Simulated scan of single mutants.
Amino acid sequence: MKWLKSRKGQQAVIILSFITVPLLLLVIFTYLPFAQMVQFSFYKMKYLTPPDKRVFVGLRNYIDVFTRDDCFKALKLSFYYCAGALFQLALALFLATILSFGAKGGNVFKGMMFFPYLISGIAIGFIFKFFYTRGFVLDSILGIVGIDVDSLPYWLKDQKVNNWSLVATSVWRYFGQNMVLFIGAIMSVDAELYEAAALDGANRFQQFFHIILPGIKTIVTLNVILSITGSLSAFEPPFVITGGANGTGTYFVIMNEIAHVTQKVGLASAMAVVLLVIIFIVTILQKLFFKYVFREADT
């Protein structure tokens, strides 16, 4: 008791409390549900199936993930979102670099670009659902500039363009967030480095590759990892705008349908585990890639 009343004892209690509570919440709301999900992935069951009525099927659900047309093949749609994410990051980094060196109206532009990120994903889905609908906003704008509306494709039905239309929605929403993060990182780079580089005859292009890019390598790596992993789990645009119809059903949309419509909880759990493994592998590969790319950054 005397030790608990001492300064070191009180510090130990406070530290232990701050460690225990978050870990306890993490175990209860993350690790235990995940362990339960892994367990469900080995059974054929519905949500309300009693434990004694669940049928153990072993790896059957995992085999179905890779063999069913509506499961693993839906993951290929993530490549559309990955391509959009890389384009979005490149554009955000380009504009962030320009704005960091000062530009008229830069603060207004940053605010306008960041605003879509503050809007709910569901609301954005409804906005773009009407934006792409035949004869509505996009078609009207293209008609004003002289394009024949009848020659335009159905943006949400034509399978040649509908996934790119949904990708554009994600690019529009997250572009501003990445740009602001890049600007913050670029502003933290020591300005004296630019002056020294300019004295050595380095132009803006050389300054970008030899000062800015190595200086913000942590933010670049983080943004790419978050964007790619987010692309693998794309859900809101296809779910809200098209409902997964006409070949727009991403892996998450199909998983949601299997879990909540057809009530195949075991199969949906197996899909979630497979996606987690894929995201983990992709994250490791990205870290190794950037470690190689920025191997000389410290130098």
Rank of each mutant, 00 (worst) to 15 (best):
K5V: 06
S6T: 06
S6F: 12
R7V: 09
G9P: 13
Q11L: 12
V13E: 09
V13S: 13
I15R: 10
F29V: 10
L32N: 12
Q36M: 07
M37G: 11
F40D: 03
S41R: 07
F42C: 02
Y47S: 07
P50A: 08
P51G: 07
D52T: 13
N61D: 07
N61G: 05
Y62F: 15
V65S: 05
F66P: 02
T67D: 10
C71N: 14
F72G: 03
L75P: 00
K76Y: 13
K76L: 09
S78R: 00
C82F: 15
G84E: 08
L86G: 06
L89D: 05
A90N: 09
L91F: 12
A92R: 02
L93V: 01
F94D: 03
L95A: 03
L95V: 15
I98L: 14
F101T: 11
A103N: 06
K104R: 13
G106L: 02
F114G: 06
Y117I: 13
I119Y: 10
S120G: 14
I127F: 04
F130I: 05
R134A: 05
V137Y: 09
I141T: 11
G143R: 04
G143Q: 02
I144R: 14
D150G: 09
S151T: 12
W155H: 02
K160W: 05
V161F: 03
W164M: 11
W164C: 07
W164K: 06
L166S: 00
V167F: 06
A168D: 03
A168Y: 04
S170N: 11
G176K: 04
Q177S: 10
M179V: 03
L181E: 05
A185T: 04
A185E: 04
I186F: 08
M187H: 05
V189R: 08
D190L: 02
E195D: 12
A197S: 15
A198T: 14
D200M: 04
D200Q: 10
A202R: 03
A202E: 03
R204I: 13
R204S: 14
F208K: 01
F208S: 02
L213V: 08
P214A: 01
G215F: 12
V220W: 04
L226T: 07
S227D: 06
S231G: 15
A234F: 09
F235C: 07
E236Q: 10
I241A: 01
T242H: 02
T242E: 06
G243I: 08
A245G: 11
T248Y: 01
T250H: 01
F252E: 14
V253I: 14
I258Y: 09
V261D: 09
T262Y: 13
Q263R: 14
L267W: 04
L267T: 10
A270S: 05
M271Q: 12
L275F: 00
K287L: 05
L288M: 12
F289C: 10
R295W: 10
R295I: 15
